[in-house]
C-alpha cells in the first residue's frame, strides 16, 4: 500500500485536472489568434476506462493515462477571425477545474492523515 501509487483514482483525476488546466490556458492565450478553435479534454471516456479492472492475467490492462485523455474541439460561435474561444466560458471552467483539483487534494490529504494515524496510534493501547 505504501510503495507504488497510493490512491490511483484520485491521482488520475488530479492528472486530468492539471491537463485540463493546460488546455484551458491554451484557449485563453489564443483568444486573439485567427482561426483558432477552443479545445477541451474529455473525462467521461476516462471514467469508463478507469473502472476496467484486470481480473485475469490474460486480460489487457487499461491503457496509459495520457492516451485516455481525449482532446476535442469545443462547439462555439466563431467570431470574425474564425476564433471560437469564449473567454467567459474558459474562465468559469478554469475556476471550476482549479477548485476540483484543490478538492481532490483535500481528499488525498485526509487519506494521508488517516494513514498517519494508523501508523502512529496503531501500536498503542
Amino acid at each position: 500500500m505504501i510503495d507504488g501509487r497510493l490512491y490511483p483514482n484520485m491521482e488520475d483525476r488530479m492528472d486530468w485536472n492539471a491537463r485540463r488546466h493546460q488546455s484551458l490556458s491554451n484557449n485563453i492565450t489564443n483568444i486573439d489568434t485567427p482561426g483558432f478553435h477552443a479545445k477541451d479534454v474529455s473525462f467521461s471516456e476516462q471514467i469508463r476506462l478507469l473502472t476496467v479492472s484486470v481480473t485475469n492475467p490474460k486480460h489487457i490492462a487499461p491503457i496509459g493515462m495520457d492516451s485516455r485523455m481525449q482532446q476535442y474541439e469545443v462547439a462555439g460561435n466563431a467570431d470574425l477571425k474564425n476564433n471560437t474561444v469564449d473567454l467567459d466560458r474558459e474562465m468559469a471552467e478554469m475556476t471550476k477545474n482549479g477548485l476540483q483539483y484543490v478538492a481532490m487534494l483535500q481528499f488525498v490529504s485526509q487519506k494521508l492523515k488517516t494513514l498517519r494515524s494508523a501508523i502512529n496510534e496503531g501500536g498503542k493501547g
Partner: peptide
Amino acid sequence: EANISAISILKTM
C-alpha cells in the same frame, strides 16, 4: 489580465 487570472489559479493549485 485573463492570462494573469489563469496564472493565479494555477499558483493556487
